[in-house]
């Protein structure tokens, strides 16, 4: 087992999925690309394994699974197993050595950010992608809370689906290829996503930006009607749809809450032209670097000015309908009908 289990993002790159999970490896790659991402560090898969070994949680889980193996075929029992295993993980304290190291990185992060007190997001970073399956904790403050949330993210690897998947494949149930990202929360004025392809048509000549006031989660979850800007990559021509945005997500204590958007802001675009241009400019650059349409998440910090206020928290290859293929088949069909 490698001694080192904590890494600054700038120490990482896209090739290190297995070490720190996709999200962290990706944040590392983004840092290397020169994109502004919130400062932070990664907890590697080795960290998780060390925790499971040193606390005995791994052993306990193995025992539990062996005992209940016969019952684990039914969904009901899998749900129970998931709860139990999560309970086992979360009941453990962080081993003292690991705790000290985490404290140290958190303190260093505070210094790097130049703040007296720092709020961070603790996000899961699976090496195998299971979107929406693993937890993310926002607005986490204080070193003890950070330690707690890291353990909870580890626990969240034991979803019902993950358990049944590992059982089916004959993989050890207590092993989970999970990393954790700990990064500074951005004081979000507005946030959202940008795609360098129109996901519905597969039109790669356009960039679409969607955003809302507050944190990006409201846009990603699809609960509100965000502002939408469709920008032509070549001409820069913008098709702009400003929607009435009644709700937004903001920090609350050590988590988040949904609240009303102040009336004067509801029908106002959540990004200005300069900010929009900067978002599109960077998205296009990232796309051309990876040679593939990108799906990216951005945040505007209200404590800074454009372009220093633009932070990136995610960049991945966009998933969009395989219109190209379908279109070709459609054209072939039309040609057939000519005869």
């Amino acid at each position: 087992m490698s001694e080192k289990w904590l890494y600054w993002f700038e120490e990482l790159n896209a090739g290190q999925n297995d070490l720190v999970g996709k999200k962290c490896a990706n944040l590392g790659e983004m840092t290397r690309l020169g994109m502004r991402i919130p400062p932070g560090f990664a907890v590697s898969v080795d960290g998780y394994e060390r925790f499971m070994a040193e606390t005995g949680a791994g052993e306990e889980i193995r025992g539990y699974v062996l005992e209940h193996m016969a019952d684990l075929k039914s969904i009901k029992n899998q749900v129970k197993a998931s709860e139990t295993i999560r309970g086992i993980v979360e009941s453990k304290e962080m081993p003292a050595g690991m705790r000290e190291e985490l404290y140290h990185y958190y303190e260093e992060l505070r210094k790097r950010a130049g703040m007296e007190e720092i709020a961070v997001a603790v996000r899961s970073s699976g090496a195998v992608s299971m979107p929406g399956q693993m937890e993310t904790y926002l607005n986490v403050r204080g070193r003890e809370a950070v330690v707690r949330k890291v353990i909870e993210v580890w626990g969240s690897a034991f979803t019902t689906r993950a358990i049944s998947f590992r059982l089916e494949k004959g993989m050890p149930v207590e092993k989970a290829p999970i990393g954790v990202a700990v990064l500074k929360m951005v004081e979000a004025k507005a946030a959202g996503v940008v795609l360098t392809v129109l996901p519905t048509t597969g039109d790669t000549s356009k960039v679409v930006v969607e955003g809302n006031w507050g944190l990006g989660e409201s846009v990603v979850s699809g609960e509100i009607n965000p502002d939408q800007f469709i920008v032509d990559k070549e001409s820069g021509c913008v098709e702009c749809t400003v929607n009435q945005k009644t709700k937004m997500i903001v920090y609350h204590d050590s988590g988040t809450k949904t609240c009303e958007v102040p009336e004067e802001n509801q029908c106002k675009a959540c990004v200005d032209t300069e900010e929009l241009n900067e978002i599109v400019r960077i998205a296009k650059e990232v796309e051309s670097y990876f040679q593939a349409p990108q799906d990216m998440e951005w945040v505007l910090d209200f404590t800074a000015c454009c372009p220093e206020n633009l932070y990136w928290v995610q960049a991945r290859t966009a998933k969009y309908s395989k219109v190209e293929e379908k279109e070709a088949e459609y054209l072939a069909e039309l040609m057939t009908r000519l005869f």
Binding site: A328, E329, L331, A332, M335, T336, F339
Partner: peptide, 17 residues
């Protein structure tokens, strides 16, 4: 014609792609 149609649909694809 029907038989040829189903082969045509595939054979013409490289031109489109």
């Amino acid at each position: 014609k029907k038989k040829r149609e189903s082969r045509f649909r595939k054979a013409i694809l490289p031109f489109i792609q």
